[in-house]
Design a protein around this nucleic acid. Structure first.
Length: 421
RNA sequence: GCCGGGUUGGGGUAGUGGGUAUCCUUGGGGACUGUGGAUCCCCGGACCCGGGUUCAAUUCCCGGACCCGGCCCCA
């Protein structure tokens, strides 16, 4: 018996019903905001990731040398490929809004909410530096979660990289990237350890404590300015906070609530240049549901041309954790699925003909071909996700009507075949 | 890469240094002439892998694989 690879998942129909439903909500939401679908290969040249992310990330990928001695990587993230597509067709009029649901791979120890292969819903806007574009990206993430029934179960934590940089600057940071990395560990380290680390990065322990107090408080997004000014009255952050406030007010106008300003959200990646955000379940039990931000400089690394960009990624694993917990890991059959069960030899031909007619009308119709008794056929039909059984025996042959049984309620009615839909 | 806990038919389990390895369920076949989504009968199917200790290992020891969780990292 050959076993499945470590960290990979099999999906049976009962899960695929739900997964298809989820992916459909993602696509539908993306379209509502005017995004167009793209797709790209699962394999890319290793260099695509080397330039952007460095050797550390590469060590956590599935990579190999192909027969032509090329270094190949199974894509671990979506953004580089997306940017590559854009760079390969430079005359596309901007802005563009693209989405994709690729499979991604990472060679790491599996743990809760993280597998070696996962699907990730990605959406990006290129060539639009406005705060409304930021809002559209965050709004799309919210729209998707709301569409899945998670409204009220999650919060979006937002922050602005440049505001944090200004603050770090004013506190005498020795190294901004290192400072951000320390802040990023806020929810993993003790206060003492945080103060110690920040003291090493900033000009004084007083400053470290002030920053620690600042990042320890999440506030409603509309109160962000107030919060920042309270702690750092003399820092000229207005230019960036105006930007962030426009994003926030757009989200409010569209009725996406549950947005909080969280100074501890900075995200690990160095390439973010503006707003950054992460979605979490409200209880904070799981890893982030989605995350993203503005990355206006990344494109120049890959295509040699600078281009405003903002985007997010939403993995399927944490989403599944949360949906299962909220009892939302289910999907109603989008359409009726019929199985035709015959209980009289002479009904066989009629049954096949009926199946053909129904299919020609766009109705999903299968026939039961194994000649079990009715009880067993009904049981098997339910186990195979049919919504209705059409029962045909002598009685039906004589009356010219068929019996349609709803397999979930057990309700039954007689009808003309034209009444089936 | 590191740390902790696990692993007995497809799923859930009982048990044991020695005999044909327990029970439920699922699956397959049959009976049953139209819905009791049943019932009855029959059948198939497991000690994760390798090494060690021992007369004898599914059981004890060591290593590995995989699963669950955590660290690192986070796309």
């Amino acid at each position: 018996m050959i076993e499945r690879l470590k960290g990979f998942r099999d999906f049976y129909p009962e899960d695929m019903i739900v997964r298809e439903h989820i992916f459909n909500i993602m696509r539908k939401s993306a379209k509502l905001f005017g995004f167009m679908p793209i797709d790209y290969p699962s394999l890319e040249s290793m260099d695509l990731f080397r330039t952007k992310s460095g050797e550390e990330l590469l060590s956590q990928t599935y990579s190999f040398i192909d027969r032509g001695k090329r270094e190949i990587t199974m894509i671990p993230e979506a953004t580089p490929s997306t940017v590559r597509l854009l760079g390969a067709k430079k005359n596309i009029p901007k802005p563009v809004k693209w989405y994709c649901i690729p499979k991604l791979w990472r060679y790491e120890e599996p743990q809760s909410g993280r597998t070696r292969e996962h699907s990730q819903f990605n959406a990006d806007i290129f060539g639009d530096a406005s705060p409304v574009a930021d809002a559209e990206i965050i709004g799309l993430a919210c729209e998707t979660l709301n569409g899945l029934g998670l409204k009220g179960s999650y919060e979006v934590r937002i922050n602005h990289r440049q505001i944090m940089e200004k603050i770090l600057d004013s506190l005498g940071t020795k190294n901004i990237t290192e400072g951000l990395n320390i802040i990023d560990r806020f929810r993993k380290e003790s206060r003492e350890k945080m103060i110690e680390n920040l003291s090493g990065n900033l000009s004084s322990t007083d400053n470290a404590e002030r920053l620690m107090d600042f990042i320890s408080g999440k506030v409603q997004a509309s109160k962000a300015d107030e919060r920042i000014r309270e702690f750092f009255p003399n820092i000229p952050f207005e230019q960036f906070s105006e930007n962030m406030n426009e994003t926030i007010s757009a989200l409010e106008a569209w009725d996406y609530n549950d947005i909080v300003y969280d100074p501890a959200t900075v995200r690990g990646l160095t390439y973010y240049t503006g707003i950054v955000f992460e979605g979490f379940d409200k209880e904070g039990k799981y890893r982030s549901i989605f995350g993203g931000g503005r990355y206006d400089k990344l494109s120049s690394i890959i295509t040699g041309q600078e281009l405003a960009a903002v985007g997010f990624g939403m993995g399927d694993a944490v989403l599944e954790n949360l949906l299962r917990e909220k009892n939302l890991w289910k999907a109603e059959a989008a359409r009726n699925r019929y199985i035709i069960i015959t209980i009289a030899e002479e009904a066989q031909k009629f049954s096949l003909k009926l199946a053909g007619n129904l299919r020609a009308r766009g109705i999903e119709a299968a026939t039961s071909n194994t000649h079990k008794n009715l009880s067993n056929s009904l049981r098997s039909a339910t186990a195979n996700w049919y919504t209705h059984a059409i029962i045909i025996g002598k009685k039906e042959m004589e009356s010219g009507k068929v019996t349609v049984r709803n397999l979930s309620t057990g309700e039954q009615k007689e009808t003309d075949t034209s009444g089936i839909n």
